[in-house]
Computed example of a mutant assay.
Amino acid sequence: MRLAPELVADLLTHHPRIARALRKNQLVDEGILREWLMNVGRRSAVEQLAHLFCELLLRLKVVGLADGTGYKLPLTQVDFADTTGITSVHVNRSLRELRQSGLIELEGGRLKILDYAGLRALAEFRANYLHLSDCAAA
């Protein structure tokens, strides 16, 4: 849906809470873009998947779709490959490495994070780019 420029200008001028929300949304979008550029350019396949799992945990937690240890993740290895830009064969090897390291379990369309601190360290994941509350990011 597109908003007319006049409507956006009116919202920004006369509705400061909406303006603040729009600015925060833009900051989050830009932060995610920067992190995914890092994923593609600098992180290994294992680190990319670890980063994805950490990001999804926090984002799903905020909206009540994840508990402290995991969430539903009904994606195939081809879906992971498309998301990360690596081959499905490499996804398979990387998931196996994450499992063997004792960091995750992925069964029946559910991801269980066994060692969040270890997964975060592997991914060099810092949640500040998501601009979540301290409670949600903890």
Rank of each mutant, 00 (worst) to 15 (best):
R2W: 03
R2L: 02
R2V: 10
R2C: 01
L3E: 13
A4S: 14
A4V: 07
A9C: 02
A9I: 04
A9V: 04
L11H: 08
L12W: 04
T13A: 15
H14K: 15
H14L: 06
H15Y: 11
R17L: 12
R17N: 10
I18L: 13
A21H: 09
L22R: 05
Q26C: 08
V28M: 02
V28P: 02
V28W: 00
G31C: 06
I32Q: 09
I32F: 07
R34C: 06
E35K: 12
E35S: 11
E35F: 02
E35M: 08
W36R: 15
W36D: 02
N39E: 14
V40R: 15
G41Q: 09
R42F: 04
R42G: 03
R43T: 10
R43K: 15
A45G: 09
V46A: 11
E47V: 09
Q48F: 00
Q48W: 01
L49W: 12
H51P: 07
L52N: 07
F53W: 08
C54Q: 07
E55F: 03
E55P: 05
R59S: 11
R59F: 00
L60D: 04
L60E: 06
G64L: 04
L65C: 08
L65T: 07
A66L: 03
A66H: 02
D67H: 09
D67S: 08
G68Q: 02
G68Y: 03
G68T: 12
T69A: 12
G70K: 04
Y71E: 02
Y71P: 03
Y71G: 02
Y71T: 00
K72H: 05
K72I: 06
P74W: 07
T76M: 01
Q77K: 10
D79M: 01
D79F: 00
T83M: 12
T83C: 05
I86L: 06
S88E: 13
S88N: 04
V89I: 13
V89E: 12
V89R: 14
H90G: 04
N92Q: 13
N92G: 13
R93G: 03
R93C: 03
L95N: 03
E97D: 11
Q100C: 08
G102Q: 11
L103A: 04
I104W: 06
E105L: 07
E105S: 13
E107S: 14
G109R: 09
G109F: 01
G109T: 08
R110H: 09
R110K: 15
L111N: 06
L111E: 00
K112E: 10
K112W: 07
K112I: 10
K112A: 09
I113K: 04
L114I: 12
D115Q: 10
D115R: 10
D115N: 14
A117L: 06
L119V: 08
L119Y: 10
L119S: 13
R120H: 02
L122K: 11
A123R: 08
E124L: 11
E124Q: 14
F125K: 10
R126A: 02
R126M: 01
R126Q: 07
A127E: 12
A127F: 00
Y129A: 05
L130D: 05
L130Q: 03
L132T: 12
C135D: 15
C135Y: 15
A136Q: 13
A136M: 10
A136I: 04
A138F: 05
A138K: 14
A138P: 07
A138V: 08
